[in-house]
């Protein structure tokens, strides 16, 4: 709503528009509400643990950032000494990228089969696949865990990633998109003698680039941020992801030793940065993917 409902007799020159000031005030308060918690984390990564324990977050920037960063990346806190920040960062990357890639490849293949082929059991396959949208992993978490155990997938990357892929969000998204692709395209391709594989790889995939990018961002963030499933399926500290490791951090802060706020907060920061960076840098793709996939 552009605010031109001002008094028409007023001079249009420099008049303070109080409505506009209020808009900005509300937006600034909202932005601070979102931002201040992050600043608190950021501040405590620059001071010593003793300083934080005594005074809590302050308004000054300390000098311990490098020190805390080294501790976070290379010092482990568990029994095995394997859950360093480096190892957790690598595991988070594997989970985020593996999940996004797997979901997109499998989803695109299934969506292509459903949209472009005459299949006798297409309707049945459709319902079989789309029922999975109904039940989130959280409600079937224990039986899923038992099955992962039976298939000896605990503490493996396969066990970490594949069960999370068992839902049809990407398939649904690509199905919607493929259906909006003009039909003439496939007709033209057939007349030119392109087979289904050639059409898929040479025409449909390049055409879907933007959609793939948008989906990739959303899925990467979703995979990176997984918590409950990694908590159950990984018990070896060398397999922890950053987000999975958060629980241990909260318990470390409770311990009898001096709580290592610097290390813990730095690790939280490292867990936040990659997905946030992706969302900010690819904002327009991300927003497009999000608002179009869920509707």
């Amino acid at each position: 709503m552009t605010d031109i409902s001002q008094d028409p007799h007023a001079t249009p020159a420099r008049r303070i528009k109080w409505g506009r000031v209020l808009d900005h005030a509300i937006l600034i308060v909202g932005s601070l509400f979102m931002l201040i918690p992050l600043l608190v984390v950021l501040q405590t990564t620059t001071t010593t643990d003793i300083e934080t324990i005594k005074n809590g977050p302050e308004l000054l920037i300390g000098t311990q950032f490098d020190d805390n960063f080294m501790k976070a990346m290379f010092k482990a806190s568990g029994f095995s000494g394997e859950n360093t920040g480096t190892s957790m960062l690598i595991n988070s990357m594997i989970l985020g990228l593996g999940f996004a890639l797997g979901k997109i490849v499998i989803g695109m293949m299934a969506a292509y089969a459903l949209v472009y082929f005459r299949l006798r059991f297409a309707t049945f396959a459709f319902w079989l696949i789309f029922t999975t949208l109904l039940l989130p992993l959280e409600v079937r978490i224990l039986p899923s865990y038992e099955i992962a155990q039976k298939l000896s997938l605990l503490n493996t990357y396969t066990g970490l990633i594949v069960p999370l892929i068992a839902s049809a969000t990407a398939t649904f998204f690509f199905r919607q998109y493929f259906r909006s692709v003009p039909e003439e395209l496939v007709e033209a391709a057939r007349i030119d003698g392109a087979g289904p594989v050639k059409f898929f790889i040479d025409i449909l995939v390049p055409l879907s680039q933007t959609m793939i990018a948008a989906m990739f961002i959303i899925m990467f963030v979703f995979g990176w941020n997984q918590y409950l499933w990694p908590t159950m399926v990984t018990t070896e500290e060398g397999m922890y992801t950053l987000v999975r490791g958060i629980k241990q951090l909260t318990q470390d802060l409770e311990g009898t030793n001096i709580p290592e706020y610097g290390r813990a907060n730095m690790l939280a920061l490292i867990a936040i940065l990659p997905p946030v960076a992706v969302v900010i840098f690819f904002q327009s793709w991300f927003v497009k993917g999000l608002t179009e996939s869920d509707k």
């Binding site: 932005s31 979102m34 941020n225 987000v243 958060i246 936040i272 946030v276 927003v287």
Partner: peptide
């Protein structure tokens, strides 16, 4: 106003 979308719930 939107970056917090990417923060994991446990974080």
């Amino acid at each position: 106003l939107m970056w917090v979308y990417a923060v994991a719930p446990p974080v």
